[in-house]
Amino acid sequence: MFLRIYFFFIFFLYSSYVFSQNAILQNDKSNSRISYELRHPAHDVVGVSEELEVKIELNRNNYSIINAIAQVRVASFNSGNSNRDSEAMNLIEAIKYPYARFRSTSIRDFGDTLTIYGDLTFHGITKNITIKGNKKISGSKLIISGNFAISLDSFNVKRPTLLFIPSEEYLRFSFKCEFTIN
């Protein structure tokens, strides 16, 4: 009797542990992308990377996102002009700081919209940023999209110039990442 109760209790605990655990999901890189837009009075530049890596902690009960991390190789951004991209890599010292990384500190999940607070490390400097996002569940696919902007000055990045005129201070990012819910 004692052993039965004991094992039942242990089974109950571990089954509740297994079924109550949050799922850790890694994005499908082939269906994920991040792009930046840099505005200049003469010319706006858009660069796209398809090497965005994102990992999220998902509540299985209500599909709310609890935590997230992301990283992207800065040299993977393609603006359609490798010479311009090379110049950008010089400015952000891509050899010394090859990755931009994000780690959420808190997430407000409203079901189909998200507000993600976290730390972005870029050009060797970590700053707190806020990301406004959208969340969509379609079958077994979870799609998160969003945007945020960073100040080049605050990350100590010299602004690129064209015709001796510097670009706008803010680099505007948009992203979309897709996950498969198991």
């Binding site: 040299a75 393609n78 359609g80 490798s82 010479n83 311009r84 090379s86 890599m89 050899i95």
Partner: peptide
Amino acid sequence: PFERREEFS
């Protein structure tokens, strides 16, 4: 340069 892709720019 840092990188050079096959492209016409």
